[in-house]
Design a protein around this nucleic acid. Sequence first.
DNA 1: TAGATTGTTAATCGATTAACAATC
DNA 2: TAGATTGTTAATCGATTAACAATC
Lengths: 231, 231
Amino acid sequence: MTSRPPRPRERGIPEATVARLPVYLRALQTLQDRGTLTVSSEDLASAAGVNSAKLRKDLSHLGSYGTRGVGYEVEYLVYQISRELGLTQDWAVAIAGIGNLGRALANYGGFGTRGFRIAALLDADPAMVGQSVASLDVRHIDNLEEVVRSERVSIGVITTPAVSAQGVATRFVEAGVASILNFAPVVLNVPDGVDVRKVDLSIELQILAFHAQRRADGDGRGAERAGLELT
Amino acid sequence: MTSRPPRPRERGIPEATVARLPVYLRALQTLQDRGTLTVSSEDLASAAGVNSAKLRKDLSHLGSYGTRGVGYEVEYLVYQISRELGLTQDWAVAIAGIGNLGRALANYGGFGTRGFRIAALLDADPAMVGQSVASLDVRHIDNLEEVVRSERVSIGVITTPAVSAQGVATRFVEAGVASILNFAPVVLNVPDGVDVRKVDLSIELQILAFHAQRRADGDGRGAERAGLELT
DNA sequence: TAGATTGTTAATCGATTAACAATC
DNA sequence: TAGATTGTTAATCGATTAACAATC
């Protein structure tokens, strides 16, 4: 499809691996905070909630950053994963829709110990515009394109009501934002090359309900049984 | 592992399918609101953002609810998927941690047009306790076990700070809650049989950053290129 | 050298997809 | 009957996992 420019080492980290790298990174940062210098795949996997074979396979896609017989140097691995994820640079984030959720995200300080900067808050409600949220002035959504340009926004977070989400997404994309995190309960239509990730509370609850029902009609009392097994 | 009780039709809906059923359900409800009576796999798939082969395959795991040459009756399929997901009953949900995010969730009304009921809000901060949020009195976290029992809570939502999350999870599980939705940035340790789902803003942003970086160093200017391709 | 642990292989499993026979 | 569309088959693809040779 696109021409492949010459690159060091063949890329192509599996999506499933990419999705776990942030989990490993957080576990490593926790170890680092405790002053741990070195960790085995077994221990890191356990901290990340995966099995060690999967962890080693995942890390092998980044390179050979461990030492046989020893393990992985925590600080070095933190750096390598951060670099791979693109966290050694700073990404400007704009949040559109400053309701309860938008405010919660704006105030959520620690984005995995840096890599992101909330650069702008946008809302369609004139009463909201001008208010200060998390030390930022809320700007009117009409200024989206201008803000994206001036703040070099590359990630757009959509926390608008469902009806407004597609319109905002299209404007983000046309303004040059190719990464979107969508909290609105709609399927966004975007052109190829734009990356949309979706976070949806109802969907998560419904998936939980499915399994809960299974437990409930599968055996007598699922929840209590699980409780008893608690170690 | 567990004894299999006699059941109609062999169950075992793939996890990937379960995760998509809520998406189909929402698309169907939108169609229903517009008064659409019947829909083809092609159209429903398009509304849900998947391809039609996948949709048909997914639905085939529930049964044969379509009519060849015609499509699916919207209302009937809404009912079948709702039933499969366990939404024909009401699930009581407790939210632990009434910060910005907890409040946002408590105030988030439409949980996919019913199936869930926010039954309790819990917080460890005495200043928070007794306040009214979304028409519910915030109760002290010490009452967790009592509240789970009296309200028959089966789903626990954790929006506490990271340090408190594991403790709250353990208490939920011991109280009989076997379904947990975790917004805290930690890996929860729970016994087998307990279902934990995780929603994590930083992880989503980091995955977006990975792809954004790819675009950025893959070709000249990824975002603008994507913008130009917009139809 | 002996013990520990990585990085990789290969087998297995599950998910996706195209194609089409069945059937309305 | 002709046209449309489902439900299923089978091929393909990607992810997981156990096992172990390589090597610190």
